[in-house]
Each structure stands twice: as C-alpha cells, then as structure tokens.
Computed example of a mutant assay.
Amino acid sequence: MAVPLLMTEEEGESRPTSLVIPEGWRATQVYEAVDKTLALPPGTTKKSLAKADLKLPNDAEGNPEGYLFPATYPLGENPTPEKLLTAMVGKANEKFTGAPIAAGAQRNALNVYQAVTIASIVQAEAAAKEDMGKVARVIFNRLERGMPLQMDSTVNYALGRSDLRTTTEDTKIDSPYNSYQRMGLPPTPIDNPGDEAMSAAINPTPGDWLYFVTVKSGDTRFTADYAEHQRNVAEFNRIRESASKQAAEAE
C-alpha cells in the first residue's frame, strides 16, 4: 500500500504536509512510512526509538507495536521521527486510557495492553468491520476454554509477512507469536488497531463460536462445530483453487 500523503505546492515543488497511518499497519510499516515521508535513510525511524522517550505501558517493554495509533498526523515545522512517534503514542494513550476502553478491559478481566493485543488480532483477522465483534468473541471463547488461538495472523507476524494461506510447516515455527503452539495471547500486539477493532475487543458479540473462515468476499462463516468448520474450510479451498486455475488459464 502506498503511503497516503496530503500534498501542498510550494515554490513549484510538492512536499508532504501530513502522514496518514492506516488501521492495521505494523510498526515496521509505520517506520518505513516515516522514513519515506521525511526523506530519511531507511532504518532511521526505528533507530530513533531509543531516544524518543515514548510513554508506553510497562508490559510493552519499549515496543510501540499497538500504540502507533492509526490517524492523520500533521508534519508541522521541522518534523522528526521522534515527534511523529510521540504523537502516535500520545493519541493511543488518549484513546486507550479513557474510561470506555479501560472500563471495558476491566469488565472482561483484561488490562488495557491485553485488550489492545486482542484488538490487533481482530484488526488483522476480520474480513469486514461487521465481523469484528464475532472474531473477538472467538478469541475470548478460545481463551476461556484453554484452547490455542490458532490465528494465522499471529504466525504471519512471526514470519514478517501477510498471507491468506498458512501451511502446516508455518505453524511449526518456534516463536512466541505462534498461536498454534503457544497458549494464550501473543506477547505484544501484532499491528496497530483502530477504533472499531478496539470497540470489538471490549464489546465482543455474544455467541458460542470457536471457528471462522472467510469463504469468499462478504461471506465469513462462524461456527462452534468443528465438522461444520472443516466443510467451510474445504469450500474456501475449492474456491481459491478454482480462482487460481482460472487465473493461470487466462495468462
């Protein structure tokens, strides 16, 4: 995804005046966007973390993943990576430590950092905003039953990629983010969630679902029955393979 920028004309040259951080971007994507927007050498923003003095929760251990809040940030005069990162974390703290989020997390026996972590998974997994509450409920139901989350998004985060299909080999990766092998939540958020995902994380839709799969665009199926889920996954695979075959024949 190209970094969306608001441009202005000055002396015949275009320069960015704002940086837009989309919902669901990982910290690595944010760092790259800041470097590009400020015309800095790659890696500059990530290196600036040490001197940015970000106001992160103790659980984050200095890692801002989840707290680089998606929004539009004016660059202002003399923008620096530290100023932009501080603004993002400040916006996140303003959103997350307010009464609705803090009270909602407590109501679900979570601290705010855990709620942000759940929201980040919801942001990555939900195919549509209307599915977010149900995805959150699947996460809660699995945690309450002592089941591994088995979320492909956490494996993709461990592998540093995004992919619709996770292989059996992928699920064997030795990582604290491998929710196929590790119980509970991953150690940090896996992206930077927006308002809708945060709302879903503290207000999950009532239901008994344990499984879900987006069979095709606009058709995400939730169920508590494993056999039904297997049938849904088989349909997803058939549709995907058919689309791949048609694409290959068209070339």
Rank of each mutant, 00 (worst) to 15 (best):
215 V>D: 06
43 G>S: 11
81 P>H: 04
226 Y>K: 14
117 T>C: 03
91 K>G: 10
186 P>F: 07
99 A>P: 07
78 N>M: 04
77 E>I: 08
188 T>G: 13
67 Y>S: 10
208 D>P: 03
137 R>L: 00
127 A>P: 01
234 A>D: 07
248 A>V: 13
174 D>M: 08
101 I>Q: 06
72 T>H: 07
149 L>I: 04
186 P>N: 05
34 V>I: 08
168 T>G: 07
95 K>P: 02
193 P>T: 10
179 S>W: 01
1 M>L: 15
62 G>Q: 09
218 G>F: 09
185 L>S: 01
32 E>I: 04
228 E>L: 11
146 G>A: 06
57 P>R: 13
243 A>K: 14
46 K>Y: 12
94 E>I: 08
230 Q>N: 09
175 S>I: 01
128 A>L: 08
241 E>M: 13
152 D>K: 06
186 P>V: 06
236 F>H: 15
242 S>Q: 15
159 L>R: 11
188 T>H: 15
163 D>Y: 06
158 A>W: 05
148 P>D: 00
203 N>Q: 15
24 G>V: 01
185 L>Q: 01
14 S>G: 10
135 V>K: 03
50 A>F: 09
227 A>H: 13
77 E>L: 07
52 A>D: 10
41 P>H: 13
75 L>T: 03
157 Y>K: 03
221 R>T: 05
159 L>C: 05
159 L>E: 05
99 A>S: 13
121 I>D: 00
115 A>T: 01
12 G>R: 12
219 D>S: 13
35 D>G: 03
131 D>K: 02
30 V>P: 06
43 G>L: 12
182 R>M: 14
223 T>H: 05
238 R>E: 04
82 E>V: 05
181 Q>W: 08
192 N>D: 08
101 I>G: 03
47 K>P: 03
214 T>F: 03
40 L>S: 10
36 K>Q: 15
7 M>C: 07
2 A>F: 15
222 F>Q: 00
111 N>F: 10
14 S>M: 14
176 P>T: 05
104 G>S: 04
150 Q>I: 02
146 G>K: 05
205 T>E: 15
244 S>W: 15
176 P>C: 04
127 A>S: 11
89 V>A: 03
243 A>Q: 13
78 N>P: 01
73 Y>E: 04
93 N>Y: 08
217 S>L: 12
110 L>Q: 02
178 N>G: 03
15 R>D: 12
204 P>Q: 07
48 S>Y: 11
96 F>T: 15
83 K>V: 00
45 T>Y: 06
152 D>T: 08
241 E>S: 12
127 A>H: 07
183 M>L: 15
54 L>W: 03
128 A>Y: 10
144 E>V: 08
165 R>W: 15
